[in-house]
Measured scan of single mutants.
Amino acid sequence: GQVHVGDTTYHFPNPEEARKFAEKAAKENNLQVTQHGNTFKVE
């Protein structure tokens, strides 16, 4: 799974890890998570 936060892309071998990371980043920054397959975008 990939997580895009601003201009930075994080790669995770496990989509579940990617999702947890995205949700945590979104919560900390008052942002939203959008999911496209195994790619998550925090914005």
Rank of each mutant, 00 (worst) to 15 (best):
A22N: 00
K41G: 06
G1W: 15
N30R: 08
Y10K: 03
G6E: 05
N14E: 06
A25Y: 15
V33F: 09
P15I: 15
T8S: 11
V42T: 03
T9N: 05
G6A: 06
P15G: 09
F21H: 03
T39W: 08
T8P: 03
Q35A: 07
F12H: 01
H4M: 14
G6C: 13
E16W: 07
T9I: 15
V3E: 00
Q32K: 14
Q35P: 03
A18H: 00
F21P: 01
K24R: 12
T39E: 13
A22E: 01
N30W: 06
K24N: 11
E23L: 08
E28W: 10
E43A: 12
A18W: 00
G6F: 13
F21W: 08
E28N: 09
P13E: 13
E17Y: 05
N29T: 08
E43W: 11
V42E: 03
E23P: 00
Q2W: 15
N30D: 10
A25F: 15
A22P: 01
T8V: 14
V33I: 10
F21L: 01
E28V: 10
T39K: 07
P13Q: 10
V33N: 01
E17I: 08
Y10I: 08
Q32A: 10
A22D: 02
L31T: 08
P13V: 10
E28F: 09
Q32N: 10
N38A: 04
H4I: 15
L31S: 10
T39M: 12
A18V: 00
K20Y: 07
Q35S: 06
P15W: 14
P15R: 13
H11Y: 15
T9P: 03
K20R: 13
A25S: 08
G6S: 05
V5T: 03
G6Y: 09
Q35T: 06
K24M: 11
H11T: 09
R19C: 11
E23W: 08
V33Y: 08
L31E: 05
H36I: 14
D7P: 07
V3H: 00
E23N: 07
V3R: 00
K41A: 09
F21D: 01
E17P: 00
N29S: 11
Q32F: 12
V33G: 01
E23F: 11
E17L: 13
Q2P: 00
A25T: 14
F12V: 00
Q32Y: 10
G37C: 14
T9M: 12
T34I: 12
N29K: 12
K41W: 15
K20S: 10
V42M: 03
G37P: 00
V5M: 13
Q32I: 14
E43K: 05
V33M: 07
K20W: 07
T34H: 12
Q2Y: 15
V42D: 04
F12N: 02
F40T: 05
H11D: 08
E43S: 12
V33W: 10
E23D: 09
K24G: 06
Q2R: 13
H36S: 10
N29C: 15
K27F: 11
V5G: 02
P15V: 15
N38V: 04
T8K: 15
V3F: 02
V42K: 02
R19H: 05
K20D: 10
K20N: 09
Y10P: 03
L31H: 08
P13L: 10
D7Y: 10
Q2K: 13
E23I: 09
A22R: 00
V42L: 11
E28T: 08
Y10V: 05
H11G: 04
H4S: 10
T34R: 08
E17N: 05
P13S: 13
N30G: 14
E43V: 11
L31V: 07
E28I: 11
V42A: 02
G6V: 04
R19S: 05
V3N: 00
T8E: 13
E43G: 14
H11K: 07
T34Q: 06
V5H: 07
V3P: 00
K41N: 12
Q2D: 07
A26E: 02
A26I: 01
V5Y: 13
Q2C: 15
V42G: 03
V5S: 03
P15T: 14
V3W: 00
G6D: 06
F12S: 01
V3K: 00
K41E: 14
Q35D: 03
H4V: 15
R19E: 05
P13Y: 07
D7A: 10
K27S: 09
D7T: 12
V33E: 01
G1S: 14
V3Y: 00
G1Y: 15
A18D: 01
D7H: 13
G6K: 06
